Simulated assay, not measured.
Amino acid sequence: MQDWWQKTFPKGRQYLTITDASGYPMQVAYGEKGVGKPLILLHGIGSWSYNWRKSIEPLSQHFRVICFDAKGFGFSEKPQDRREVEGHQAIEFERIIKELCDEPATVVAESLGALIALALAQEHPQIIGRLVVVNVPIFTEALPHWGMRLFSHTPLEVVQIIDRLRLTYLFAPLIREVMAIERREVLFDPSILTPEDIYWITYPFIEFPGTLTKAAEELQIADREIKNCKFNKTGLLSKIQNNLNSVDCPTLILWGEQDSWFPIAHGYKLNQCLPNSQLKVLRNCRHDASSGASEVVNEEIIEFLMGTDFI
């Protein structure tokens, strides 16, 4: 099967080296297409740049579109045998933007990526010109899926053994089938998920040891943050919630009307909390908006960005 990066980006897959939040050098996989103002696409947990496959071409007609894989996911480097520091995603995202952009960027981010984008807009508003967030887990009170909850309670040492033995590779057909079932559940029209989609969505988990461990660790961090927030303990999630009114860049909130993971009521609440935001409800859309409602998502992004100026 043709390499997705080579097929999608003029220069194929490129690599950027940054210092991660723990002080280690790290290689980040990315691709870019188009010219103009920088627009960065950020995926959610357990995903990678492929999740934006239906947005890169349309958006690149107007902007310099940059996709990158967060640390541990996709084709980016997998940290081995070390734990993450609090807020590492936002720290590393800031460094990636500074390396790739010489002016404030538009950030388009989905799910956990959108939460990271909100944190960055609070801490470093000078590097974000405009913001688009899609189906954000900002007010969630629990991990939304049984698989997430399972991995959040599985000792990382056990997951590391699975990774080192390459069990996902040995059971690749089963892994693909399970993930296909799960992906179809978050799509309004499950029939749009193709065999090629399943191949690339699961590729990092099957081919790159460390991906599964990284996903499990991020889920454990997320579970801890949700519980801290629920019991009024200080944490990153509560900090983001309490400082939403400090995000003053123009912000578009996109939310799937039938999102069963994070209900549309959370979108209305977020719209009330962000002073310079507008909410667009995506009809016939569940959680996976970037894939399941890509045409509408792209149209809304372009309309929003063409009608606002960089700060």
Rank of each mutant, 00 (worst) to 15 (best):
M1F: 08
D3Y: 04
W5G: 13
K7G: 11
G12F: 08
L16T: 09
T17I: 15
I18W: 00
I18V: 15
D20P: 10
Y24C: 01
M26I: 14
Q27F: 01
Q27R: 09
V28L: 09
A29T: 12
G31F: 01
G34M: 14
K37I: 12
K37N: 08
P38E: 06
G44Q: 04
G46F: 12
W48C: 01
N51S: 14
N51Q: 13
N51R: 05
R53W: 06
S55K: 08
S55V: 09
I56K: 05
L59V: 06
S60A: 14
F63S: 04
A70T: 05
K71W: 00
F73M: 09
G74W: 02
F75M: 08
S76N: 04
E77A: 02
R82Q: 12
E84M: 09
V85D: 07
H88D: 09
H88C: 10
I91G: 00
E92C: 06
E94G: 08
I96H: 03
I96C: 02
E99M: 13
L100M: 06
C101T: 03
D102G: 11
E103T: 10
A105S: 11
V108Q: 00
E110A: 15
L112E: 04
G113L: 13
L115W: 05
L118N: 07
E123S: 15
I127Q: 01
I128D: 04
G129W: 00
N135K: 03
N135S: 12
P137G: 00
I138H: 01
P144I: 08
P144E: 05
P144Q: 08
G147N: 05
F151S: 10
S152C: 09
L156P: 13
V158M: 14
V158F: 14
D163F: 03
L174I: 14
R183W: 15
E185M: 10
F188Y: 13
D189S: 06
P190D: 05
T202H: 00
Y203P: 07
P204M: 00
T211L: 04
T213N: 06
T213V: 15
T213L: 15
K214F: 14
E217H: 04
E218K: 00
D223R: 05
R224C: 13
R224T: 11
E225M: 14
I226F: 15
I226K: 14
N228Q: 11
N228H: 13
C229Y: 05
C229W: 01
C229F: 06
F231D: 07
N232E: 14
K233S: 10
T234Y: 02
N242T: 07
N243Y: 08
N245L: 08
D248W: 03
P250A: 04
L252K: 02
L254F: 06
L254V: 11
W255N: 08
D259S: 07
D259W: 02
G267R: 00
N271V: 12
P275F: 05
N276Q: 03
S277M: 07
K280F: 12
L282V: 03
C285K: 03
R286H: 11
E295C: 07
V296P: 02
E299A: 00
G307A: 15
D309G: 11
D309K: 11
